[in-house]
Design a protein around this nucleic acid. Sequence first.
DNA 1: GGTTGTTAGTTACAAAATCAACTATTAGGT
DNA 2: ACCTAATAGTTGATTTTGTAACTAACAACC
Lengths: 145, 145
Amino acid sequence: MTKKDEFDLQDFLPYLLNQAAEESSMAFQQVYKGRYGMLRTEWRVLFHLGNYGQMTAKEIGTRAKIHKTKISRAVRKLEQRRFLTRTKDEQDRRVEHLTLTSFGQAAYRDLHSVAQTYDQKLSALFPAAEAKMLRYMLRRLAGSE
Amino acid sequence: MTKKDEFDLQDFLPYLLNQAAEESSMAFQQVYKGRYGMLRTEWRVLFHLGNYGQMTAKEIGTRAKIHKTKISRAVRKLEQRRFLTRTKDEQDRRVEHLTLTSFGQAAYRDLHSVAQTYDQKLSALFPAAEAKMLRYMLRRLAGSE
DNA sequence: GGTTGTTAGTTACAAAATCAACTATTAGGT
DNA sequence: ACCTAATAGTTGATTTTGTAACTAACAACC
């Protein structure tokens, strides 16, 4: 309230992170939503499968910290729209392995290239060393290292 | 898919930003939810009013990039729970000025101090100069400078 | 080999976010 | 003054998320 209150909302890291995340994902959302009618979680699942290859729902959830119900619904939709297929694990039949169809892979490649371009555009806001530092700091804040 | 695919999901800025934002706001959510039963948008509105003083719904929405229906509902709840009051502008009667009650101010001060401590804890992950740089970069990514 | 505990994934119901349409008021042009 | 457009904020219908309870399969222990 007072002026000597040195802590401004604009300096609060969770707030800044949220604003930056929102801004950057909104721009990209238009692409996957517009071209493929995907929701955020669906896009994230697709990107994981495209990036890492065959995975289970659990693995995606753990790696991306997405709740399993969200994954479950995203997977169902992606399957219905022929982006991926499921195959039951032979050893452990609770587990399902998710694989992109060729259609899914094409969508991944398309979105991947847009993402890459967009990422370069964002990175270009800063000198290369700083952009690299930023990524490192974000990873630490996300708790993944 | 292949190994020479140099663009990893873990390097995609919107993804990293989202992960970091999610991680940091989840931790803080427990505080305002637990102590005051507030939702994310309510907390954000409260913080804006505490930080900048009297504002209109529109101003908060513009500054924080929150949709007006979210603000509208958050304001109603904060009013019902006596955190703030509304007064119609005399010149333009479409506009409502929002002000924290003393109860609202107390809640703000309480949460503010928790936020400040938490922010310091996050900042302490990095050398001071880098933490400062991080804030600057996030502000740029958020498009606010 | 049966009981208990755990894990992968789904489903049902409640809470919240989104989108479009709405009211009330002001602004601008003619 | 009158018609149209714009703005602040609200409401209702639909979509999406979150929470908890659930099924099915496996593991571990006695």
